[in-house]
Design a protein around this nucleic acid. Structure first.
Lengths: 344, 344
DNA sequence: TTGAAAGCGCTAACAG
DNA sequence: CTGTTAGCGCTTTCAA
């Protein structure tokens, strides 16, 4: 049951390795009988080409690297499932790495994946990444990269995002329409695309409904919610204000659960004292106390789209004249955390 | 900024590739000056050895493969974080694959990882795996494998598990002590280790407290909760019983949330009409309605332990005389879903 | 139609 | 102390 190589087949069949290789790849310039002979023997011996050898030779690997902030997050894990479903069907393998919101880890992962000869990269930036040099360099070398979710403005390539502006506008509008006046927004660092876009939607909704924007109602968490303490501090500042908010709109999975935990600890009633709408894909939103109103992203579809674009880039490198940014509509799932309806 | 190889260095410095190689690996039999020269040049040119070439040569890769049922699951994603934290420090890379509870996917992933020359495997069996041939074969070839969580009895190697019997006993005992008489157990397929162990703990607690075991209160979900319909059907059967249970003890993350969803849809009050204790690592247990009593596994520590055992196996293949099974105590987090206390 | 040889990047046995 | 050579598994000229 040892691994069998082309050389073994050649020896067994009294052929040269090149002939075997050609027969296996179904090359035209080969005798039908020889081909059949080789095919059958290979089949019988359960021959599998060594992907490492192929990679070394061709500098490619039929695999794509994915770099995301973290796996333990509903949005990203759903997205990964989307990526895998498509990649699998197209014969690509998916290698996942977490940056843990660290710039250094992101760079290290990138380098490793490249040295491992991935054919392309799918990236959502860490919340602490401000320098994009490691990606720019690779793109110049011709490595296809597609960004999703947290995308850089400075780099020209395919991108896949949610319509963050819209999602955020809709959430804010909903809060305004249900009577909230002082709507706070807890979000990620300002240099992330998702942050600025969501902030813009929030501001625009306030503006459209004649509510003055107040910077002190916006809190930025550098670690994107990974650091509970940071999260809690932001919440505390909000609660300690002379005029505390009557609604909070956290901008991500982590931020949302962190926010809810603080409210619960402080015995603040939702939605009576505080309405909540989370920008989150958490699976149990419906089961929370109270059920959580959420801006949900089509994470699975986003993953599928991203990997399709990447594979297009990999397999037809010349053909791409113009890069596109695919934007997906979010859906607002209205539940009790924002509607004032008294829960059971 | 092209990739630089040993050959390039050799040419530039007028040395042979082997000398460069030796200098780089800090071999003793080398002139200090030459060594310094090479080192400095390599540093300056940002030389990185090609891991693919190394793998091809040595048939190892300083990477370990992880095969789990799914990522989008708190228990497994926490476990992965544990694995990564240790592996990273010891210079190993972690490649994660999901079986999606499918035997075929598990086999395919295994084969791929092996062809990619991972140095070892960390595995939690899919809920549909009954044939272990693909792993046995590899172990015979000498590939180190450590199983965790869902482990096979039939294979002798290191294993890392939670004390499922204890966790389950404690949960059941708690339900009994809080006055429940008809405790149902929703679980995975019977041939999974976690199933039998948890079932055993459940039965023993019933027995110790003089409650007759009733098979009709135990429901098996073949897909381990992945299939919502299966989950719902099991719940419905329970609810439709002449004497429906007054408590449910679901045996995993998925099963627990599925169970809660059905109860909510049927407007069944928790804990008044039905107490719930979940065997789950869900992060927001505290935020659920009502807060969920949970048997929590030390997932991070389990991941760390598993990878440590695996790397020991990889790096000292001879030394291992006896295999060990590390068992971790679970903790019962008591909250309102099982305590009858009326929630706010 | 087939085979011999070279090369992908690296290391190690063997010579010198 | 350093260079030559061979080989990991595979494909692809180039020759035959």
């Amino acid at each position: 049951m040892e691994t069998i190589t082309i050389k073994d087949i050649a020896r067994a069949l009294n052929l040269s390795t090149s002939t075997v290789s050609r027969a296996l790849r179904n090359s035209y310039e080969i005798n039908t009988e020889t081909k059949k002979l080789v095919m059958e023997y290979a089949e019988k011996m359960n021959y599998r080409p060594n992907p490492i050898a192929l990679s070394l030779r061709d500098s490619k690997s039929k695999s794509i690297g994915v770099i995301i902030p973290e796996i333990a997050n509903n949005f990203f894990s759903q997205l990964i499932n989307g990526i895998e479903s498509i990649a699998y069907n197209l014969g690509y393998h998916v290698v996942i790495f977490q940056s843990h919101e660290s710039y250094e880890r992101e760079v290290a992962n990138t380098n490793y994946l490249v040295s491992r000869k991935v054919d392309g990269l799918l990236v959502s930036l860490s919340s602490l990444t401000t320098n994009l040099h490691h990606f720019e360099e690779l793109m110049e070398k011709g490595l296809p990269i597609v960004f999703f979710d947290r995308v850089p403005n400075e780099i020209e390539t395919h991108k896949v995002v949610a319509d963050n502006f819209f999602g955020s506008y809709e959430a804010t509008e909903h809060l305004i329409k249900t009577g909230r006046k002082r709507i706070a927004h807890i979000t990620s660092p300002i240099y992330l695309s998702i942050t600025t876009e969501r902030l813009a939607g929030y501001k625009k909704a306030l503006e459209d409904y004649g509510i003055a924007f107040d910077e002190s109602y916006v809190k930025y968490c550098h670690h994107g919610g990974k650091l509970a303490s940071e999260n809690e501090a932001a919440m505390q500042e909000l609660l300690d204000m002379a005029e505390p908010p009557d609604a909070i709109f956290p901008a991500s999975d982590r931020l949302t659960t962190g926010c809810l935990a603080v409210l619960q600890k402080n015995n603040i009633r939702i939605p009576d004292d505080m309405a909540i709408v989370g920008f989150t894909n958490i699976g149990v939103a419906e089961l929370l106390n109270p059920p959580l109103t959420a801006v949900v992203q089509p994470a699975m579809e986003m993953g599928q789209q991203a990997v399709e674009l990447l594979i297009k880039l990999i397999e037809h490198p010349k053909k791409t004249i113009e890069y596109e940014t695919k934007s997906f509509r979010t859906s607002l799932m209205i539940r009790e955390s924002s509607t004032g309806k008294v829960h059971a």
